[in-house]
């Protein structure tokens, strides 16, 4: 009896959420069919669902997805190398950190992606522009999280390393780096998410490349159900990306 109640309590929230979502979609369908919502502004949900297959089959969605994901991953590799490198540098030289950390934090709050026209001039309309904009826009959080992780290493661990007379390099690789790894991964994950958002955004804005361009193209063709379907698809892709990196993060984090 108790178990059944517990199961019901566990299932109630997702069921409520899903039911509301389905009901909202049905309501929209009814309102459009009744002419309350203009169907030339919001297409019928059934039309959107039906155009999913068409968009996937005709618009080379897999190729576009691979392109966008590849650009975001390339930006992620750059972020990992440069971001963690700079973070370690700032941690290692205290004076440098005191001088620059607030600058990095300030840059994190600036709309860096607005530099995309500048990148277009420098790198041209190419995949390199996407990678670079994803990289630059996502760099500050990676640096900040790396410093945070290194600076948060427990004092005891550092003292253990000292009492074993570890060299600087050993101290870094055996103590500081493993201790900072979870926080660094939080930074890399944030960076990857930022990179993906910015890559898709700029693809949409300059009508070039992968998934972002797909939406722009369908919208310019005034293929309404297609546009909505493509947007749903991109949202799904980013949600999956977000969820998977979230799992990896939890898996990497030591049980504490």
């Amino acid at each position: 009896m108790n178990g059944a109640r517990r199961l019901a309590a566990k299932l109630a929230p997702p069921v409520l959420g899903l039911t509301t979502l389905v009901l909202a979609i049905i309501l929209i369908q009814i309102l459009i069919e009744a002419g309350r919502i203009n169907r030339f502004v919001v297409p019928l949900p059934t039309q959107i669902a039906a155009s999913f297959g068409r968009v996937i089959a005709e618009e080379n969605v897999l190729g576009r997805f691979l392109l966008t994901a590849g650009e975001a991953l390339a930006a992620g590799v750059l972020l990992t190398v440069v971001g963690i490198g700079l973070g370690v540098l700032l941690y290692r030289f205290r004076l440098l950190r005191l001088a620059c950390e607030t600058w990095v934090a300030a840059l994190a709050s600036a709309p860096l992606v607005l530099m995309y026209p500048l990148f277009l001039v420098i790198f041209g309309r190419s995949a390199l522009t996407m990678v670079m904009i994803g990289f630059v826009a996502a760099l500050p959080p990676v640096i900040l999280k790396t410093i945070e992780g290194l600076a948060g290493t427990r004092r005891v661990l550092i003292d253990v390393g000292r009492s074993f007379k570890l060299t600087q390099a050993q101290q870094f690789w055996k103590i500081l780096f493993p201790a900072a790894l979870p926080s660094m991964f939080v930074g890399i994950r944030l960076g990857l998410i930022f990179a993906l958002i910015n890559v898709v955004g700029v693809e949409f804005l300059i009508n070039f490349g992968g998934l972002g361009q797909l939406i722009n193209e369908l919208a310019e063709r005034y293929d309404l159900p297609g546009t909505y379907a493509a947007i749903c698809f991109v949202v799904l892709v980013s949600v999956c990306f977000f969820a998977v990196t979230g799992w990896i993060e939890r898996w990497l984090r030591p049980a504490d």
């Binding site: 109630a12 929230p13 997702p14 409520l16 959420g17 509301t20 979502l21 998410i193 993906l196 958002i197 910015n198 898709v200 955004g201 949409f204 804005l205 972002g212 939406i215 722009n216 919208a219 546009t227 947007i231 991109v234 949202v235 980013s238 949600v239 977000f242 969820a243």
Partner: peptide
């Protein structure tokens, strides 16, 4: 109940690229 039912949607929709909704 509301939090558990709807927050995951916000949590997962939050980091999606918003500019694609522009059209």
């Amino acid at each position: 109940l509301l939090g558990k039912a709807f927050e995951p949607y916000l949590y997962y929709l939050g980091p999606t690229p918003k500019i694609i909704f522009f059209p």
